[in-house]
Simulated assay, not measured.
Amino acid sequence: MNSNWKTFLLNQQTLPNDENRVAFADTANISENSIYPLTHLAVLSVTGKDAAKLLQGQITCNVNDISEAKSSLAAMCNPKGRAIATFLLVKKSDEFLLILPVELLETVKKRLQMYVLRSDAKITDSSDEFCLLGLCEPEHAAQTFSTLIQKGIISISFPGLTSRKLLVTNVDSATRIWTEQVDSKGFRTGSSNEWLYLDIISGIPWVTTATSEEFVPQMLNLDKLGGISFNKGCYTGQEIVARTHYLGKSKREMFLAECQTLTRPESNSSIINKDSAEQEVVGKVLLAQLGEKSYKMLIVLQTTDSDYNNLGLQDDMQAQIKLLPFNV
């Protein structure tokens, strides 16, 4: 994170809860106009005349479809087709930006670097150059990851019933935008955890260190979110991803759920079917974040012809899990 940006946020009476996240005291509900410091996310840039070719051979979306007006979710997979990371791919002029969780930035950077060889491509941690902001304006909903670039500020609209924009800009513009939205327009300040909560109820499948290389992209609903191209050609893991697609429905799928428990369910925690004789493991937790009264979770479950009516956490036998419709 840019040091000047971090200092600015700390001066806004933030409550730092770890190295990469800056939390504000909750003051209102998420239906209000709100602004968020997205310090849990980082930016990896790929530049050079071979940047598009490099990415095309390593990620699930079609890089040729990405423009300054259109961004996309995508995944980078290992040879077994398991998602190492998921990210938002953005284009600015001839530069590609991968917006992804801070904890996986070095992993993705090193993985891409393996395939550069003699290509004219440079991979850079640009987290010090760019600041990430989130805006929530409930009255303006979007349907796709549409992008607008004005005066050096990249604005990516997130699909969903809750209208949100992710802004990518330099520290001077970030501090100006923050001040304008809070002081002049009355936006409330939210936390990066609250933004993650909105990602969860909207079905945005962020992979973390705990879940890296656990799931084929279809298990994360990336195909439904437009993050997989099945006609772009070869990329690492493509054979497995394509086979899953052409042989029929994936045996596992991502769902939104809520859980009544006192502690946050950890990513990659096991989910059991309490109605089965041996209380078998039927899924895993991808992400969880506390909402108003319960934890909202993205979970990956085995698909079945019958409904799951009694799900729980293997490590917390008192916890009850209920499936919910996505906020889209």
Rank of each mutant, 00 (worst) to 15 (best):
L100G: 00
P101A: 12
E103S: 08
E103F: 02
L105E: 00
E106N: 14
E106G: 05
T107A: 09
V108H: 05
K109A: 11
K109L: 10
M114K: 13
Y115N: 01
V116K: 14
K122I: 15
K122Y: 15
T124K: 14
S127F: 07
S127I: 09
D128R: 06
F130L: 11
C131L: 08
C131D: 07
L133P: 02
G134D: 06
L135Y: 11
E137H: 08
E137A: 10
E137Q: 15
H140D: 02
Q143S: 14
F145E: 10
S146T: 15
T147R: 03
Q150M: 01
G152L: 08
G152D: 10
I154V: 14
I154D: 03
S157D: 08
S157W: 02
P159R: 04
T162C: 04
K165F: 01
L166E: 05
L167D: 03
L167E: 03
V168K: 02
V168R: 04
T169Q: 15
N170S: 14
V171G: 11
S173D: 15
S173A: 10
S173W: 04
A174W: 07
A174P: 09
A174N: 08
R176M: 05
I177D: 05
I177T: 11
W178Y: 12
S184C: 07
S184Y: 09
S184Q: 13
S184E: 13
K185R: 11
G186S: 07
F187L: 00
S192P: 05
S192L: 08
N193C: 02
I201T: 15
S202G: 15
S202E: 12
I204F: 13
P205R: 00
W206R: 03
V207N: 03
T211P: 09
E214K: 12
V216I: 15
Q218F: 01
L220W: 02
N221E: 05
N221H: 06
L222I: 05
L222A: 00
K224Y: 08
K224L: 15
L225F: 09
G227V: 14
G227I: 11
I228C: 12
F230N: 14
N231Q: 14
K232I: 12
C234T: 08
C234Q: 10
C234A: 13
Y235H: 06
T236D: 05
T236F: 13
A242T: 15
A242V: 09
A242S: 14
R243V: 12
R243H: 12
T244P: 06
